[in-house]
Simulated assay, not measured.
Amino acid sequence: MTVQTIRPQLTEDDILRLMRGETPEQRASVAHRLCRRIALDVLSDREKAFADEIIAILAEDAADLVRRTLAITLRSSPALPHDVALRLAHDIEAVAIPLLQDSPVFSDEDLVELVLSVTAAKQAAIASRESVSITVSEVITEHGAVEAVRALSINSGAEWTDKSFDDTLRRFGRDEIVQAGLIKRDFIPTHIAEKMVSLVSGQLFDILVNRHELPAQLAIDLAASARERATIDLVEQAGRTNDLPRFVSQLNLNGRLSNSLIMRALCCGQMRFVEHALSELSGVAHQRVWLMIHDAGPLGLQAVFDRAGLPRKMLPAFKAAVTVFHETQHDGGSNDRARFRARMIERVLTQFQAIPKDDLDYLLDKLDYYSEMATREDAREGIDAA
C-alpha cells in the first residue's frame, strides 16, 4: 500500500521528508497535511492500520514541533490510536495539553489515572474538557491542584456532586478564583452557599446571596443585618427555595413577612410566594387560598385579604396586580421566566401611579435586572445558534 491510498496529493517524496526531513519544520508541515486527511477521510481497515503506523512514527519524532503538530491536528479526532494518545498525554505540556483538553479517545478511567499522575497544567486541561463526568470531577476536587479545581469551577460542562463541592471548600475554600467560579455556577447546593457566606465578601458576597438559595433563617438574618441589608433580596430568595411554606413561616416568625414584601413579590410575578404568605397570615390552607385568589372572584380575594390582616387600602392595587398576572403569559422560550417578570413589572408600573418610593425603586431595579437577564440569554442563544 502506498501513502497515495490515504491522500492522493501526498507524494512519495513527502513520505521521505516525513521520515527523514532535514528540519522539524519540514516534517511538521508534512505531518499536518497527513493528519488532516486521517482526521477527515473515511479509511478502510488496511488504510487505518497504515495511518496508525505513520501516527506512531510521528509520536516518536525527536522534535517537539512535530509531536505538537500531531497532537493539535488530531486533538478532536477519534482516529488517534488510544496507546499513542496515552503516550502523548505524558509528553511535555505543549504536546499533551491539546489532547487532554479535547481528545475523545480517553476513557474516564484514563482521565482518573492521568489526574493522579500529571502536572497541574495537565490536570487543568482535563478539568476544562467540554464535559467532565462525576467520577473525574470528584477525583479532581479531592486530589487535583488548585489550578485544576479553578478550571473545573468555571466549566459549565462539569458535573458536580455534594462531595465535589465539600472537597473543594475543604481544600481551596479561601481561594478567591475558586470562590468566584463556584458562585457563578448555575447551581450550588444550599449547604455550600451557607458555608460560603462566611468565606466571601464584597461583590462575590452580593452575587452569592442574590443568585443562590440560602437556608431560610440565614437569609432572613442577613436581610436584617445592617451590613448586608442592601444586598440580599428576600423576594428572590423566596423564588429559589425548595421549601416555600417553611421559608414563609420563618419570615413570619421573624417579623419579616411585611405588606411591602408581599406586594413586591406579587408585582414581580412571584405568585406562589404570595399564596403561601396569605395562607400563613390568614391561617387558611394553601389550596383554599389558591381558589380564593384565582377562582372565587373578587369577593374571594377580598375575604382572604382581610383574613390575612392586610390593609384595605392595598386591596385595589393587589386586585389589579393579580389581574395583570392572569393576563401576562409565559412565552415558552428559554429563560421565559425573566421575560415574564419583566413584562409583569412593566404593566404594574404602567397601571399604578401611587407606588411608595421604596417599592418603586425596588421594582425599577428588578425591571432592569430581569430585562438584562433576558437580553443576555437571547444573545447567548444567538451565538450558540450561529
Rank of each mutant, 00 (worst) to 15 (best):
S133N: 04
S133I: 01
I134M: 14
T135V: 12
T135R: 15
T135Q: 09
T135D: 10
V136Y: 13
V136C: 07
V136M: 04
V136N: 13
S137F: 06
S137W: 01
E138L: 03
V139E: 00
I140D: 02
I140S: 00
I140H: 02
T141F: 00
T141L: 08
T141N: 03
E142I: 00
H143L: 02
H143P: 05
H143G: 03
G144C: 09
A145S: 12
V146F: 06
V146E: 06
E147H: 04
E147P: 06
A148E: 08
A148Q: 03
A148H: 07
A148V: 08
V149K: 02
R150I: 15
A151K: 08
A151N: 00
A151E: 07
A151R: 10
A151D: 00
L152Q: 10
L152F: 10
S153F: 09
S153N: 07
S153V: 10
I154W: 07
I154L: 01
I154H: 09
I154D: 00
I154Y: 11
N155I: 04
S156M: 14
G157Y: 08
G157R: 09
G157M: 06
A158R: 07
A158C: 10
A158H: 05
E159L: 13
E159Q: 12
E159K: 12
E159A: 12
W160N: 11
T161S: 15
T161I: 02
T161P: 06
T161G: 02
D162P: 10
K163S: 11
K163G: 00
F165H: 12
D166E: 08
D167H: 09
D167P: 05
T168L: 14
T168M: 15
T168G: 15
T168W: 11
R171P: 11
R171A: 12
F172Q: 01
G173T: 03
G173S: 02
R174I: 08
E176F: 09
E176G: 06
E176S: 13
I177Y: 08
I177E: 15
I177R: 13
V178C: 05
V178F: 03
Q179K: 08
Q179H: 03
